[in-house]
Amino acid sequence: MDYVIKLKDVSVSYLQNRKGTHSVKDFVLKASFISPFEKHRVLHHIDLTIKKGDSVGILGPNGTGKSTLLRTIAGIIKPDSGSVEVKVPISPLLTLGAGIELELSGYENMRIALALTGNYSKATRSEMIEKVSDFAELTKEQLRMPTKMYSTGMLARLAFSSVMTAQPELLMIDEVLAVGDRGFQKKCKNRLHEILNNGATLLFISHSPDEVKEVCKRGICINEGRKIYDGSAKKAAEVYSKLF
């Protein structure tokens, strides 16, 4: 089958401030001796091919480059070396509530979120908005309120629904599935399965091996910026558990 993502020997570094150079004073003091920035390698020589319809769980300890990997695939970070090839549009859900403006109403935020994820079009606008509000289980009245009056759970529902309602081709989820109450979580998982059944590809970061086993078929384990396992979700969960 055809692949949708192909990473060849990808290495990614961050340009990092040397300790504590965050003000001009430090900058002037330090820059005269050493460059204030240093490169810090986050991902080492990653090779990865993902086929259409794959559901891939990504496991690994904190700070080992899981999010960086997704951001590299999404084109948000440019790799130092290697090539990244992505053939389909991406719906990223990397930080929950990115772009939610607390002063604006639920409806306004919804429209912005739809535009940012590439799901906004004039033709389907009202239909989409209705679907999103249905999924989020927010009433018209609530959606007209500024989102600063929302509870954390309501905010998460709003953010999540704006992405989950569309049928994405390639969905990326970064540790944000555990939102809302039990009922909403269940709904999200059902919707996720629905999206997958419709032929979407999924990249899914989680810290719960059980969740990965439940949602994904394939699993990848990352440790210290290197891919240490790539295979079935079940095996990846075992490898992950052994890391601790």
Partner: peptide
């Protein structure tokens, strides 16, 4: 291109709304 147009529109809209909405 179409999508980018929406993004530009909404980001400008957002900036203006945030500036004046609640005064």
């Amino acid at each position: 291109q179409i999508k980018r147009r929406y993004i530009i529109f909404f980001l400008i809209y957002k900036n203006l709304q945030l500036k004046y909405k609640h005064s």
